[in-house]
Amino acid sequence: MSDLKQELKAKIIEQLNLEDISVDTIADDDSLFGDGLGLDSIDALELIVMLDKDYGIKLLDPKEGRKIFESIEVMANYIAEHRTK
């Protein structure tokens, strides 16, 4: 699980072009949206694509993302449970 969290942090930084943020500066329970990493609605769509492309998880309802993308911790738990690749 720890490896998956580190992997997610690295993917988010790279794919969402988060400048001046490193893997070490993201805590597992940091909010990804709002006051945390400050991700926006387009970033949320990118994360949905990432779940599909990298982990074989299709979110049919984008609103599901609100809970899944709460933090790295929540995301990693969801991926570990639902991944197909």
């Binding site: 387009i42 769509l45 990118e46 694509v49 599909d52 492309k53």
Partner: peptide, 9 residues
Amino acid sequence: YFPSPAVFV
């Protein structure tokens, strides 16, 4: 087929 929303916008 994985179009990027961040590119598309």
